[in-house]
Simulated scan of single mutants.
Amino acid sequence: MKTINKKICLLGHFHAGKTSLVIQFLEKRFQNYYGADLGVKIFETCHQFHEDQTLNLSIWDIAGSVDEYFPNPVYLAGTHGVIIVTDISQTDALDHVNSYLHWLDTLTDIPLKIAIALNKCDLIDTADLSLDYFPTNPLVIKTYETSAKTGKNVNIIFQELFNHLWDSPSIP
């Protein structure tokens, strides 16, 4: 059996819904309130691809940031993939994503796989929302409207990132 170990980090501002996305993905449930993280919560999961392929995944839910303050870069050591989570109901949500993309670009020479979760899409009318807002960034796999509350696209965003991680080489 082929087993690969990978680490992904969820990044985003406070109250963007990072923990809610992870809990919805792992436990298929939603809770209205989670206490603010002070550092990082680590979730371990095993994802079976086929009968003979397993992905052991460490999901790091990194405490939210505010304004131009980003988390300690040491949390990103050994990271293979990132989900940038933003509260799409906030007017400056896309600016937050751009800030995280720029910050990640300055930190590492490692080509991370990045997915973007425009979370809390259940709170707004998304008819006029463009999911191609970040097409020029080669690190971005795809942008998804997500809702941790309803479960919309939660499994899909994780699965898409897993598929890209499976094909990428391991980082020592």
Rank of each mutant, 00 (worst) to 15 (best):
I88C: 00
I141L: 12
C121G: 08
L104A: 07
N5A: 03
K113Y: 10
C9L: 07
N137L: 10
L57G: 06
A148N: 11
V97D: 00
L76C: 04
I84W: 06
T45Y: 11
K113C: 15
A63R: 02
V97L: 09
K7M: 00
L131P: 07
V85M: 01
N137G: 02
Q53R: 13
C9A: 13
E160T: 15
P172E: 15
P169D: 06
I157C: 02
P71I: 07
I88Y: 08
A115F: 03
A36Y: 12
L21K: 03
N155T: 07
I88D: 04
S99W: 12
L118Y: 14
G17I: 11
T91R: 11
D95H: 02
C46V: 10
I83N: 14
L131C: 02
F134R: 04
A93L: 01
E44M: 06
G12A: 12
I141R: 10
F158D: 05
I62L: 04
Y34C: 08
I141G: 07
Y144T: 01
G35Y: 01
E68M: 13
A127L: 07
V82K: 08
V22S: 00
T136K: 09
A115G: 05
Y100W: 15
K7S: 04
H50R: 15
C46D: 09
I88H: 00
P73Q: 13
K41M: 01
D109N: 13
T108H: 06
H15T: 14
K28H: 14
A117F: 02
W103Y: 13
T136A: 12
Y144I: 07
K28P: 04
N5I: 01
K120P: 08
K120R: 14
F30Y: 15
T126N: 03
G39T: 15
F158T: 06
A127I: 03
N72K: 08
L104T: 10
D125R: 02
F30K: 10
P138Q: 10
I62V: 14
G151A: 12
P172I: 05
Y34H: 12
N119R: 04
V22T: 09
F70V: 05
A63L: 05
K120C: 11
V74L: 12
T106G: 06
Y133P: 01
G12K: 02
T126A: 09
H80K: 14
Q24G: 00
I157V: 05
T79R: 09
I124F: 06
L76P: 07
H50Y: 13
V97A: 02
E160Q: 10
H15V: 12
R29G: 05
P73H: 13
Q31D: 14
T126M: 01
K2L: 13
A16G: 08
W166R: 00
S89N: 10
K149M: 07
K149L: 15
L11V: 08
L55G: 15
S130C: 11
V85E: 02
L10M: 09
G151D: 07
T146S: 01
F162D: 03
S99L: 10
L107W: 11
N72P: 01
D132K: 13
K7A: 00
T19Y: 05
E68W: 13
R29F: 03
A77P: 00
D61H: 02
L101I: 05
N56W: 12
L123N: 05
F14G: 14
T19E: 08
